[in-house]
């Protein structure tokens, strides 16, 4: 009766992450460069006899990392937890805010200057104020700092995504006499989804940075930021650097996870 396309019938029908298309050279090249830099650093510190308080050798840092693996992991858990909660809350606020601003023009116009202001002021600068607001014994201030840093890029990206709804899709919804909430659910949010996750990927490192730096200004101990300041204060520079490495790994972890999530959610959004 009806013919099925013979060519298309053989195609893969499972969704795939575009990550499978990444070539080895793109991963190996930066790794190689990193190794060279570490090697050069080690040689430089060794030959030029640089004092540890100026720049400790990678080997010395590594010694501290292995010796303090437990405390570094604990610190990363504390800081990571603040960053994660902040990121999730900030993402929710950003997406909801963008959904409202995308629906009502006047909200967008009212919010624009506020968002622009939030985008330029360093949010961490608010940390001391927040500590006095919520008390220095809790992590609330840090979570808020991380949350606000995330909410802004997520809001801006989501709003951009909402504006990408195709005219055909809008016509289709009108033709189906869909209600405003149905339009948002069926077309607007799915269109914006990849943009949301792009915003989230950009914001992920901000969340870690914000949660970390906020610790410099006080609050409960245990996080990586506090550990960095206290080991630097007691002149244990290799240990301070060991905590810094922990922070780098934590930031990378956030970045890679959000990147994978972003790739997953944009897998069907390749231009048709």
């Amino acid at each position: 009766m009806t013919a099925v396309d013979p060519v298309a019938a053989g195609r893969v029908t499972r969704p795939r992450l575009p990550i499978t298309e990444v070539r080895w050279s793109t991963v190996l090249a930066p790794l190689g460069l990193g190794a060279l830099v570490v090697l050069g650093w080690e040689l430089l510190v060794d030959r030029a006899e640089i004092e540890p308080f100026i720049l400790p050798a990678p080997s010395a840092i590594w010694e501290q990392v292995t010796a303090n693996a437990g405390t570094i992991t604990d610190g990363a858990t504390v800081t990571g937890r603040n960053a994660l909660i902040g990121m999730l809350a900030g993402a929710v606020v950003g997406v909801l805010g963008a959904a409202v601003a995308g629906t009502f023009r006047f909200v967008d116009q009212m919010a624009a200057p506020v968002v622009a202001a939030l985008a330029v002021i360093p949010i961490v600068a608010l940390a001391p104020v927040l500590y006095s607001m919520f008390g220095a014994a809790v992590n609330t201030g840090r979570i808020i700092v991380a949350g606000v840093s995330v909410a802004v890029p997520v809001y801006l990206n989501t709003l951009r995504g909402i504006r990408q709804v195709r005219a055909v899709h809008r016509d289709l919804m009108t033709a189906y006499a869909a209600k405003p909430l149905q339009v948002i659910r069926t077309v607007t949010l799915p269109t914006a989804t990849p943009y949301v996750f792009t915003g989230l990927r950009v914001a992920s490192s901000l969340a870690v940075i914000a949660a970390l730096i906020a610790e410099y200004f006080g609050g409960p101990i245990g996080g990586l930021g506090k550990s960095i300041t206290s080991s630097a204060a007691s002149s244990n520079y290799p240990l301070a650097w060991a905590y810094v490495s922990g922070a780098i790994v934590l930031g990378l972890l956030f970045y890679v996870v959000t990147l994978l999530v972003e790739l997953w959610f944009s897998r069907h959004h390749r231009p048709a």
């Binding site: 009766m1 009806t2 013919a3 099925v4 396309d5 060519v7 298309a8 019938a9 195609r11 893969v12 029908t13 969704p15 069907h268 390749r270 048709a272």
Partner: peptide
């Protein structure tokens, strides 16, 4: 069944040819 695409129910549009879409 009517449009001859029963085998593609679970596919996504980007996995179909223009005619199938």
């Amino acid at each position: 069944d009517l449009v001859g695409l029963s085998d593609f129910a679970k596919s996504h549009p980007d996995q179909l040819s223009g005619g199938m879409q």
